[in-house]
Design a protein around this nucleic acid. Structure first.
Length: 210
DNA sequence: TCGAAGATTGTCT
DNA sequence: GACAATCTTCGAG
């Protein structure tokens, strides 16, 4: 039994940090279980925190939509690193995307964090995302959440078990509140059901195009 | 060295 | 719904 002070402290920090072993499992399981967890990023301007409401799985070299399908390159190298590190890259020259690397080392797969429900540091997020008209729009997309939390190339390869960028346990999302659909914005493997999100949550990004 | 593509977003019509 | 912004990466020549 842990001392009450420790239990209270853990509650205050929205749950303990997810260990590296959490990520060392099937990417699809990690993507599902990351729903409800808390992403926390500390920077010189303060702390920002959000609850994960949408994820996508990218399964490795056999997944045509995964960056690793092109093999190991300078860009995709973090995917081949240990599970539990961040893979951050620039898309369209304008937006950062944030992934958590999964599975045992050497298997290049990851979970893209697509959307967060803002929890803490909303004023700071708003200053970084002046285009967002509602709080729920501050992090409702992969590029948006990186901007809101201040995630960029500096966090590439960063272990998600240590500040300034960590993922903590949150409140688990029940199965009947989770929807699974094909991934968004890709041109290959467009029918693979590898996107998980909290049903009817206003913070999830776009619905799939048809 | 050059050109094309890209896991997006915001603005304009 | 269409389209521009903006830059890194990679393949082709």
């Amino acid at each position: 039994m842990k001392p009450a002070a420790v239990r209270t402290a853990r509650r205050r920090t929205s749950g303990g940090t997810l260990p590296a072993s959490f990520y060392s499992r099937d990417t699809e399981i990690v993507a599902r279980e990351l729903l409800g967890c808390i992403v926390e990023c500390r920077g010189p301007r303060g702390l920002t925190r959000g609850r994960i409401v949408e994820t996508e799985a990218y399964l490795g070299e056999h997944d045509p939509a995964c960056h690793a399908a092109a093999g190991r390159t300078k860009r995709t190298d973090p995917l081949y690193g240990p599970p539990g590190i961040a893979y951050v890259y620039l898309i369209y020259g304008t937006h950062w995307c944030f992934n958590a690397v999964t599975r045992p080392e050497g298997l290049p797969s990851a979970v893209l964090i697509r959307a967060l429900e803002p929890i803490d540091g909303l004023a700071l997020m708003r200053s970084r995302r002046p285009a967002a008209h509602r709080n729920v729009d501050l992090a409702s997309g992969p590029g948006k959440l990186c901007a809101a939390l201040g995630i960029d190339m500096r966090h590439n390869r960063h272990p998600l078990t240590r500040p300034p960028l960590v993922i903590r346990r949150g409140n688990p999302v029940a199965d009947d509140a989770v929807e699974v659909t094909p991934r968004i914005g890709i041109r290959k493997a467009v029918d693979w059901p590898l996107r998980w999100f909290v049903a009817n949550h206003p913070g999830v990004s776009r619905v799939p195009r048809r």
